[in-house]
Design a protein around this nucleic acid. Structure first.
Lengths: 420, 420
DNA sequence: TGACACACTGAATCAGCCC
DNA sequence: GGGGCTGATTCAGTGTGTC
């Protein structure tokens, strides 16, 4: 089995399988259908939310706001029991309403393990919209006047989410693109690789005096303003929680790096972050580590138990502000086609080699043609020279109007200088 | 400044200011409220759309589809006059419904030239939604059954656009992120730098057999699948059309590189691209340059004139350059039996897979036999692997006399190279 | 221990033609 | 329109096993 080093790096120690024996003793709250788990209690030593010990509690507000806990129950029903204007931030990763037909196979005929869970099935857009409006409205009620909300989705659902948010009075501040470092390819070659997801960041309303930790975000981005496109890898490897068979415990676990940036951007230590679709607890785990309070709602007892177990092992950092992850500067990798798109090498232009021995015509898609040879600048260069390989960048020249030859690599440098 | 050679490549030369003297002589079409400009006619020598000369015309379809022209008029009203199922692709950059309160100022107190034109004011979401549904519905009617539509927007309007598209029956294929190389910073430091816009790419419906030039997109991206996030600079410098005072002629002129990729991805030369919000004609200019037909609708006569002027100066690239490399799907089909007939794979030869796990004997009729399995190279490959399907061309190898393995697909390429 | 090959995986609305 | 057959199609990364 893989993942031998998991425990060392991230001492999550999720039970291999949530069995009856290992399960928490679920405790029913008085006058409530909502089960709770105090996430700060040690593993296998559960206590109900209304116990006042440990990190859990109601924050001394007089309001019945359970804190640092996983509430097990229906999202909307549970939200309705929370007091109004009580949380500083919401992060929500709702069902995406994917509409998959058959199975999908990779070119090597292996089967893709897709999201086909019951919780992601809705009869139609109307049903999805109604559900969306309901939980968003409750989140808005629970959100403090100057709080903000983050919602994540893909093209299947994000337009409905965003429209519903605007209709409910939320004031969109940004849409943020999570660019995936390692997305799953499009196996049939019928679309662009679906390489991102969209987060919507919104204030409760247009007048909200929301928090934005500008300097923290700038520091995370090598002293440049943080942009609305974030490049973050998928949650894989030892960070990913596993079930008993070594498979993924949850189909859509989000990377902690994503939540780190979200929580750091709009909250300060001690504030409360609510996640109405907690899943396996990424939001809560990062919030706890960054010294924030959290409150999670999860319908599935198995996921809730895994989240609680994971949370119990999270140690808050001494100083949240010190946690600026150095961001990797991305190396711009320039494709020849980009020079064509941008008009530096127009389609139909002729390229030649240093000795003007060959001439090749540039296609609109960045391919070259020279006699029977067609393909990339590298491939055609190699074929003409009968060489096993060729660096097209340093082989091909563009003839300028005045008869000078300009090496492609020179032109590429101009694009690199522009940032790619 | 980048791209000092722009003028040479794209001699746009828009008039500094559209004055009465320089304006086209607008011609009213019979029984129509719609003014037209034939974009292919020389600058300052306009003619009405129903003249049949030049590149304009109705494509000989018998339908009244004006081509290679800028129609001046209300978007929805003009769309209603176009015949159904007549265009291959739509690119739409609708008003953004921005809701800026007052002026936006940079830290140095200079005023940002924001989008505040009349055409971008909508009283509320309901009015914007109604407008959106109307023009989208007309575009859907005009779109051919297997055509696709691109719509671009920012967080202010894109969620409403996407939801409306889904409600109207469009089938979203991708949302694509245009990551701006040089976005305007957030001057107040109250949000993330808004560094992208979103494009929605959709088929007319779920059953549409749309075109996606997979290989062309892959070629544009150094032989890796094109992703859904595109890094392209803003339209600046000499590409940007200027008004008489040297300011921006149009507030949201899109870069030609963006349209290059859009049009190349989903059309083939000769097909028709419609832009219902043409503005200063970027879509039409790139379509013309890439050998596509176009049709633009623009309400503002000044923009339309600038677009027409710009278009008159665009030279289509040579036909060969406009063609993308054909994908394998479009190559002539060779039957395996042809390889047998020609002796490239002699009858009685033994084929094997990459791991030499199975061996199969070739029949004179191009069928394979392996134990009980018999049939085509595909069928036998699938049966042996217990897979639902198999590409025999990339599964089976022929063992050569010296013990090397040669993939059937390689042998097929030899036949293709000989002209089938 | 290192180098290398190979197997496995991830929020996916994933085919097209001919009869 | 349904059924059947051909055949097009994957990237970055982690983990495991072998030499």
């Amino acid at each position: 089995m893989r993942r031998s080093s998991t425990a060392a790096r991230s001492p999550v120690s999720v039970p291999r399988r949530i069995t009856a024996a290992a399960s928490p003793r679920w405790t029913r709250r008085a006058s409530s259908r909502c089960w709770t788990i105090d996430a700060a209690t040690p593993r296998n030593a559960w206590c109900p939310a209304d116990s006042r010990g440990g990190a859990g509690g109601t924050m001394g507000t007089g309001l019945d706001l359970p804190l640092d806990q996983v509430l097990v129950g229906d999202c909307i029903e549970t939200l309705r029991r929370l007091p109004p204007a009580s949380v500083h931030a919401v992060f929500a990763d709702p069902p995406y309403n994917l509409q998959l037909k058959g199975e999908l196979r990779r070119p090597d005929t292996s089967v893709v393990d897709a999201v086909d869970d019951d919780w992601d099935r809705f009869t139609d857009f109307a049903a999805y919209d109604a559900f969306t409006r309901d939980w968003l409205a409750e989140c808005r009620r629970v959100l403090r006047k100057d709080g903000t909300i983050w919602v994540i989705g893909s093209y299947h659902n994000v337009f409905r989410l965003g429209a519903a948010m605007q209709d409910l009075g939320f004031w969109i501040l940004n849409d943020v693109i999570w660019r995936k470092a390692n997305p799953m390819p499009n196996f049939r070659g019928r679309r662009f690789t679906n390489a991102h997801e969209t987060l919507i960041w919104a204030a409760r309303g247009p007048e909200s005096r929301y928090r934005f930790n500008y300097q923290a975000m700038k520091a995370l981005n090598e002293e440049l303003q943080m942009r609305s496109d974030w490049f973050i890898p998928l949650c894989t490897g030892s960070e990913r929680l596993r079930d008993g068979a070594g498979g993924k415990l949850h189909p859509t676990q989000k990377p902690e790096a994503l939540l780190h940036r979200v929580i750091l951007s709009c909250t300060t230590p001690g504030e409360v972050v609510l996640d109405p679709f907690l899943g396996t607890g990424t939001t809560a785990a990062v919030a706890k580590r960054l010294g924030r309070r959290f409150l999670g709602i999860e319908r599935d007892p198995g996921y809730a138990a895994a989240a609680a177990s994971r949370l119990a092992a999270v140690e808050p950092v001494p100083e949240a502000a010190a946690l600026a992850l150095p961001s990797k500067r991305e190396q711009p990798r320039i494709a020849f086609g980009v020079l064509v798109e941008r008009g530096l090498v127009p389609p139909g232009a002729t390229l030649t080699d240093r000795h003007r021995r060959w001439k090749a015509v540039v296609g609109a898609d960045g391919t070259l043609r020279c006699g029977a040879a067609a393909g990339s600048i590298h491939k055609v260069g190699a074929e003409l020279q009968a060489a096993p390989s060729c660096n097209g960048w340093t082989f091909w020249f563009l003839e300028t109007r005045d008869g000078r030859l300009r090496l492609l690599d020179e032109l590429r440098q101009e694009v690199v200088a522009q940032g790619g």
